[in-house]
Nucleic acid binder design. Structure first.
Length: 135
DNA sequence: ACGCTGACTATTA
DNA sequence: CTAATAGCCAGCG
């Protein structure tokens, strides 16, 4: 089958199950946000991912909004979350408006080797890191 | 408990 | 390219 769309592998079911895979410790804070934060932290330096990719990894592709919402509370998270590595499916730094200052996001990306032009990640397709594949 | 909001995505015009 | 629409779901007043 040329259409290699079935990348689920079978283990992807619900966000909670994914959490168990990422955090076998089995903590009680199995919130949707914790899960998103974890995946975001798995993004290697110099790479970027999209909200939809994380959402899809969790099994909720249509709830990409929640991923962004989780990033918003990343500031309240116990551990730091590289939210600057998370952009939208177009490679646009849509979340930069929530940074302080907003330019910080692009600075961080360029510092890691990610070229950003006009609020958009250059070669986004190459730097794209898919949690559903890498994990 | 109800309704609005939102760092998204894909489709249509 | 822009604009509008629909779907998704957790937090907050």
């Amino acid at each position: 089958m040329a259409t290699a769309k079935n990348k689920r592998g079978g283990k992807s079911k619900t966000a909670k199950e994914k959490l168990a895979v990422l955090k076998p410790s089995g903590r009680k804070d199995d919130s949707f946000f914790e899960l998103v934060h974890e995946v975001a932290r798995q993004v290697p330096r110099g790479r970027v991912t999209s909200y939809g990719a994380i959402a899809a990894c969790l099994g909720t592709r249509l709830s990409a909004r929640m991923v962004g919402w989780a990033m918003n509370v990343s500031g309240s998270a116990k551990k730091p979350v590289p939210a600057h590595r998370v952009v939208n499916s177009q490679g646009l730094l849509t979340g930069r408006h929530h940074f302080n200052p907003p330019e910080r996001m692009q600075e961080l990306l360029e510092k890691e080797g990610v070229e950003v032009k006009n609020e958009r990640v250059v070669e986004f397709a190459k730097l794209f890191w898919d949690p559903a594949v890498e994990l």
